[in-house]
Design a protein around this nucleic acid. Structure first.
Lengths: 230, 230
DNA sequence: CGTATTCTTGACTTATATCAATGTCGGTGG
DNA sequence: CCACCGACATTGATATAAGTCAAGAATACG
């Protein structure tokens, strides 16, 4: 029931904490490994742990009204997830599954509450994080509310590249396996539509597709496409 | 440069504060009145004040890529707004305009930062608020990503009724002027579509429309419509 | 090798945006 | 008080993006 405080040194969330604070926070955390495809938690389960992604990559997906799953967000290293709950009873409103092997820091909910009250600066870090997450969610809402599918997809891909792009000969590659189904769930469209658009882009030399992988060859062109007037 | 601490007593945001804390918070706040239609701030302006809506109603709208405005949220009394900013430079990412006469509590950004550091419990209240706002935004994202326009509209109307419904002979009325254009911007569709759907509902006896007003006569039916399988 | 994912592609349908025109209400000022 | 104007709402015709249905090909994996 304790992890190395140095693991937390880099995280923005704990930037406003002193060494003592970080030590206290680390003291009640556990490390957990998640193999690709494994769930950290599932929609509907009670919330009794708080998670911070240290390495790897997750998707937070939610199903409602019996429809296809929608991906609320992709979680990148350094981010807490499953904050932002509605009114009690507190249950996970989404399913978190690893897109690749990942490591998490995990706090029991009770300890986390205590830390929040006792470690000065921690709530402020949280406010910061939540603010960023809110801003991003609003941004995606705006996209889906006002742009057509190709443009939304372009935005989604660019965001992924920015957050998890690996430099490679010929372009930037999304550094984890992501199916076209996932891209569809991320942009609120269907697999078929994504496939068509991706093929078109591939013909145009913008990208090179593959099975659960994507290499972006021409970022400026994609950016133009994402924001073009018409 | 100070308002009555009792004004803040009811706000959930300050629930975890003692009387002393509330007094400190109230001490650096100002009251401000906004006539219907007036803006508290506009998209792009630097953020140098923090706002809490005490009474009335606002809309937070954002324009991007030269398209129609999208309403990010309707702000109801008791809510802070324009939290959740991205990385610096901090500028308002939306325009806040009053839908009816409103009163705000206003803090200079600097004072607010100081309060956040010095008043115990305040950051926690903020975390709570941000969590709720995030949950709602995610909910709306889910709707727009997976439901067709009539269902989205039903959800939007129901949410408005729940938050700002006034009991009336024959049903619940949305207690502030809201144009069909606004409803369209709220659900990511067009004025025309909203008009058609509303007339259909009116024929079905679900609602009674009017110029910038809406009376919901049959909430259960609308609810059914909002979530129906197909 | 064969089986299961993941992806591609085509034909078709439908929801929804767009274009265009008309109507109605409410406030303003003559 | 009436006439006018601007904001808001209704409605129809049309175009098109995107969803649905259906089938098949490519790739990974056991």
């Amino acid at each position: 029931m304790s992890i190395d405080p140095d693991l937390l040194r880099e995280e923005a969330l704990f930037a406003s904490l002193g060494a003592a604070g970080r030590k206290a926070v680390a003291a009640s955390a556990n490390l957990r490994h998640l193999g690709a495809g494994v769930c950290a938690f599932a929609q509907g389960e009670p919330i009794d742990e708080i998670f911070l992604l240290l390495s790897g990559c997750l998707k937070l997906a939610r199903i409602s009204w019996g429809r296809e799953a929608v991906i609320l967000r992709i979680v990148h290293p350094g981010e807490l997830f499953d904050l932002g709950h509605g009114p009690p009873p507190h249950r996970h409103d989404a399913t978190a599954s690893a897109l690749r092997d990942s490591t998490l820091a995990v706090w029991p909910a009770a300890s986390w509450q205590r830390l929040l009250r006792e470690v000065p600066g921690l709530p402020l870090g949280l406010v910061q994080q939540l603010g960023l997450e809110l801003a991003e969610t609003q941004g995606r809402f705006l996209e889906i509310a006002s742009l057509d599918v190709p443009r939304r997809l372009a935005h989604a891909v660019l965001r992924l590249i920015e957050r998890a792009g690996r430099q490679e000969a010929g372009g930037m590659r999304i550094d984890f396996p992501l199916s076209q189904q996932d891209l569809a769930a991320l942009t609120g469209t269907t697999l078929h539509n994504v496939s068509r658009i991706l093929t078109r882009w591939e013909r145009g030399g913008l990208i090179t597709g593959g099975r659960r992988t994507l290499l972006v060859r021409d970022i400026p062109a994609l950016t133009r496409l994402a924001t073009a007037e018409a």
